[in-house]
Amino acid sequence: MTATLFDLTFLVAAPFWALMIFVPKWSWTRRIAESYLIVLPPALIYIVLLIPEFFTVLPLVTQPEIGPLAEYLATEPGTALVWAHMLAWDLFVGRWIYLEGRRLNVHPLVMAPVLVITILLAPVALPLFLIIRKLCDTTNRGATVVTGQ
């Protein structure tokens, strides 16, 4: 079951990525991406994987040590759990990047590579997009979105 859930995690996230990358200006893409619910499928898989592993994972995250954590991550349940965690988080970050890109009217040919990098290496894509966002947000509208002022 663990291997099946591992495989399923990408399959439930991929359609959302495909919409944001390949049809970013389609009205339904924006409607779908505006919903926080797109993150639920990989997050639910994470929860299903976590339940039987909870008492193994809890000490690893509350008192992390590299040795025991590395040992656990080398197991099938550990790898599947981290994979689901990564895909849920990457989709959450990618969703925000997509929506900010649309809000700032960043060209899809700029956004597509950023979103692909987000799928593969989200911690690299986020600072890259923050630079793009700063360059494109000439009126500092980002502060308005965050503060409501």
Rank of each mutant, 00 (worst) to 15 (best):
I45V: 10
A14Y: 15
A88M: 08
L11V: 13
A122L: 00
Q149H: 12
D137R: 00
P59V: 05
I51M: 10
T118F: 04
I119N: 02
W28D: 04
D90M: 04
V110N: 06
L130N: 13
P77H: 06
V110P: 00
P113E: 13
P15R: 06
D137F: 01
A13V: 10
F129I: 00
F54L: 12
W96H: 11
L126S: 05
M20D: 07
L19K: 03
P113D: 11
L91T: 10
Q149Y: 08
P64C: 10
R31C: 00
K134T: 09
T9K: 03
A122W: 10
M1D: 14
C136A: 13
L69N: 04
H85I: 00
V106R: 00
A13K: 03
M111H: 06
C136K: 07
L99M: 01
F16D: 02
V114D: 00
L104N: 12
R95E: 01
P77L: 02
V124L: 13
R95G: 04
I21M: 11
A74I: 02
W26N: 07
R133S: 08
Y72G: 00
F16A: 04
I131K: 05
L73R: 07
A18C: 11
P108Q: 09
K25H: 11
T139F: 09
L60I: 11
T2E: 11
I97M: 12
L40I: 09
I97Q: 02
F54G: 02
T79W: 06
V23N: 03
F129G: 02
V110C: 00
R141A: 08
R141W: 08
A74T: 07
P15T: 09
L49P: 04
A125G: 03
T75D: 13
R103I: 02
T4P: 02
L37T: 14
P59L: 10
F6L: 14
Q63A: 15
E76M: 12
T138F: 05
L81A: 02
L8Q: 15
A112L: 01
L73M: 09
A125D: 04
F55K: 12
V57Q: 13
L121K: 08
P42Y: 03
L49V: 07
L40N: 07
I117M: 06
W83A: 05
A13G: 01
A112F: 02
T75F: 10
Y36N: 15
A122S: 15
V110R: 10
R141Q: 14
N105K: 15
C136P: 00
I51A: 08
A125S: 14
N140D: 13
W28C: 00
G148P: 06
W96I: 10
P113S: 07
V93P: 00
L11M: 15
L109K: 11
T147K: 07
P113Y: 06
F54W: 14
A43L: 12
K25R: 13
D90S: 14
E53T: 09
L109I: 09
P59Q: 08
K134Y: 10
E76P: 14
L73Q: 11
V48H: 04
W96T: 11
L115F: 06
T62N: 15
I47W: 11
